[in-house]
Computed example of a mutant assay.
Amino acid sequence: MKKLTLLVIDDDPNICELIRLYSEKAGYEVRHANDGLTGVEIFYELRPDLVVLDIMLPGLSGWEVCKEIRSDSEVPIIMLTGKGESYDKIKGLDLGADDYVVKPFDPKELLARMKAVLRRYNIFNGDQDIITLPHLIINMKQYQITCYDETMTVPPKEIELLFYLATHANRVFTRQQLLDQIWGYDFEGDPRTVDVHIKRIREKLGKANTDWELKTLRGIGYKFEVNTP
């Protein structure tokens, strides 16, 4: 099996070495750069599966590197910074970063976050980007649902939630599991946001269907039930 490639862009050699040691032990192939411009050059040469990117870099900043990568690729990006201000986090996420880790960090936590963003990326960007069921098509590439011949563009979190449940048909998920998968492990909002999104999805799906159903299991969570003949 081909190893996943990780690109670490950080001006601190000790941080790069720490991430390399833990990541290689976890099975990644690791390259690193100590400035933004070199990081971008290696990115285009390597086409890594994942990027861990510091904000404070010589030359091109982490913000600029993130913007450059996002202009060409949807590869998962985890931002690293010594700052904990919410502004930095929001800016990184707005530029397209997938997660955010504040230094100093536990390498094991970083590995867990790497695994999580890769899992989400593979779910939403894998070979299966369209799910077709009787009277329902979920198209992740266009963020559209076609239900009973009516096509509608759906907000990202709603369609990602529906797509995730549909790709794991007949499996029950708790609110917390869905928050971790769709909103990320560091989501600090109200867990009931899942309920709100489920309600909105149901409103869009409309009438009941005997082939599939978005079901609530009281006190447990939700599942997308598909009835097979």
Rank of each mutant, 00 (worst) to 15 (best):
F163N: 11
G39I: 06
T228S: 09
D195P: 03
K91S: 06
T167E: 15
I201Q: 10
H135N: 15
D72K: 14
P155S: 09
D195T: 14
S86Y: 05
A97T: 14
C147K: 14
V117R: 02
Y148K: 06
V65H: 03
I15F: 09
G92A: 04
E24K: 10
S86C: 08
T228V: 10
D94T: 13
L80G: 13
R20L: 00
K3G: 11
K89H: 05
R119Q: 05
Y100F: 15
E188V: 12
F187C: 04
S23T: 10
L118I: 15
C66Y: 00
E64N: 02
Y143A: 13
G126N: 12
M140C: 01
G219A: 08
L165F: 05
E188K: 14
E160W: 11
D94I: 01
G189W: 03
E41I: 14
D12H: 03
G96R: 00
T210H: 14
L57F: 07
I15S: 13
I55M: 03
R120V: 13
L214K: 07
V226Q: 12
R20N: 10
G84R: 10
P58G: 09
K83A: 08
L37D: 12
Y164L: 12
D49W: 01
L205T: 13
R31D: 09
P191D: 09
R120I: 11
M152R: 15
L50K: 07
D72H: 14
N227A: 02
E17P: 02
E41G: 10
R192I: 06
P229W: 00
D149C: 09
G82K: 08
A166S: 15
W212N: 06
I55R: 00
V8I: 11
G126P: 04
P76M: 02
L4E: 09
L165W: 01
Y121F: 15
R192V: 12
R192Y: 10
T38W: 00
E29G: 04
R120D: 05
G126T: 13
K103D: 04
L21M: 13
H197G: 04
I198C: 05
D180M: 00
T151C: 07
R70P: 10
W183D: 03
P155N: 07
A166H: 14
D129L: 11
G219F: 06
I182Q: 01
D106L: 07
V40W: 11
L162C: 08
I145S: 00
P58I: 02
L95N: 12
G62A: 04
K215F: 09
R200V: 05
G27H: 03
L217W: 00
M114G: 05
T5P: 07
D99G: 05
L214I: 04
E24C: 07
T167H: 02
M114N: 02
V52Q: 05
L205C: 05
D11G: 09
E225I: 12
E213L: 01
A33Q: 02
W183C: 09
C16N: 15
Q128K: 11
V226S: 05
V65E: 04
R119G: 06
D49H: 11
S86P: 10
E74N: 09
